[in-house]
Design a binder for these strands. Structure first.
Lengths: 108, 108
DNA sequence: TATTTATGCAACCAATTGATTGCATAATCA
DNA sequence: TGATTATGCAATCAATTGGTTGCATAAATA
């Protein structure tokens, strides 16, 4: 599969799942309770998230607890970095401009 | 259309377009030159990005220059914030643990 | 004015997606 | 052991996606 994390977070249900399992491990059934779709639909989302290496799992008896591999989310953060550089730079430029205008105003 | 920025960045071609127009305004034709797909395919990507309010455009004669509304990218950053809090918190906890272990080691 | 050029829109198409139902397997419980 | 429960997999389906070709429009150029 040529799936990546950007595909994973494209779907709103999957984004909600990621938030839910970010702080606590949950079973597929527990997750399905949170949504108005069938357990199997949730299961397919889990499968996709798993393929994207976003999940760690722990088997307890016949239950499987899924939790978010939070470090994987850093990949999105890293991609955003190139844009963050730009908006921070532009903010600095605006800041410089305002400082300059202010000092010019004080001189008059 | 119920499209959002997460849909917009799900496609690799669109991500590449966003990078290209982040620092310079480009026409659809100029963009199409960068990819191995038809101009119309690029045009459809532009349409989608536009629906997501990711673009500003300036018409010059019959050419249209598209540039990224960089502030819109902050929406992704904001969504990531909840995860960033978690991984930064865990890093702090690890840091505390290491500091604690170190001091205990010094005491022995 | 006639031709070229830049762009957007419509129709179409194959592949993918998100969901469903049904079934198989494995673990728990009465 | 037999019934229940948790999960995953397969088949199926409608809707969406990313791509194509063809056409219409508007601006620049000869």
């Amino acid at each position: 599969m040529k799936r990546d994390i950007f595909q994973a977070i494209a779907d709103p249900t999957r984004r909600a799942i990621l938030v839910l399992i970010a702080t606590q491990a949950l079973t597929p059934n527990a997750l399905a309770d949170q949504f108005d779709i069938t357990r199997q639909a949730v299961s397919k989302h889990i499968k996709i998230l798993n393929e994207c290496e976003l999940l760690k799992q722990e088997k307890v008896g016949r239950e499987i607890y899924y939790e978010l591999k939070i470090d994987k989310m850093k990949e999105v953060d890293q991609w955003l970095e190139q844009f963050r550089k730009i908006w921070e730079n532009r903010f600095d430029q605006l800041d410089d401009l305002l400082t300059k205008l202010k000092s010019e105003n004080n001189e008059s």
